[in-house]
């Protein structure tokens, strides 16, 4: 995935079954963000792989004051990339079983 400066990782082991997973997001490279970033640490949250949209979570982070509106796209993309990878891994694992 592209280096967006925003890192998103699983905050728990993926059992491959639950649709709701815990993710952890933090800024690795502030220079990649357009807005001035207030270093508030790692943000942990749950995300539903089936029903939720990464960009919506990014907007909630903006609304909560973690990021500025100008960076909502880069945060959304960072979450989307990680979610895509998790889904891809799950699909691959399912295919391997069959």
């Amino acid at each position: 995935a592209e280096d967006t400066g925003v890192r998103v990782e699983l905050a728990e082991e993926d059992d491959g079954k639950k649709s709701s997973i815990a993710l952890r997001l933090w800024v690795e490279d502030q220079k990649k963000l357009k807005g001035k970033y207030k270093d508030s640490g790692a943000i942990e949250f749950t995300f539903d792989l089936d029903t939720e949209v990464p960009e919506t979570v990014a907007q909630e982070m903006v609304d909560s004051g973690f990021f500025l509106e100008i960076d909502v796209k880069i945060v959304g993309k960072s979450i989307r990339d990680r979610v895509s990878l998790i889904k891809w891994r799950r699909q691959r694992s399912t295919s391997a079983h069959n």
Binding site: D3, R7, W26, E28, S40, G41, A42, I43, E44, F45, T46, V57, E60, M61, D63, S64, F66
Partner: peptide, 27 residues
């Protein structure tokens, strides 16, 4: 010392905690 801060937004819970030193730069 590393107490987490909890922020609620539209029903979602964000838990904020310090980033472990080892995770700051992995590349």
């Amino acid at each position: 010392s590393s107490a987490a801060q909890v922020v609620h937004s539209a029903g979602r819970r964000f838990i904020v905690s310090p980033v472990p030193e080892s995770r700051l730069r992995e590349q």
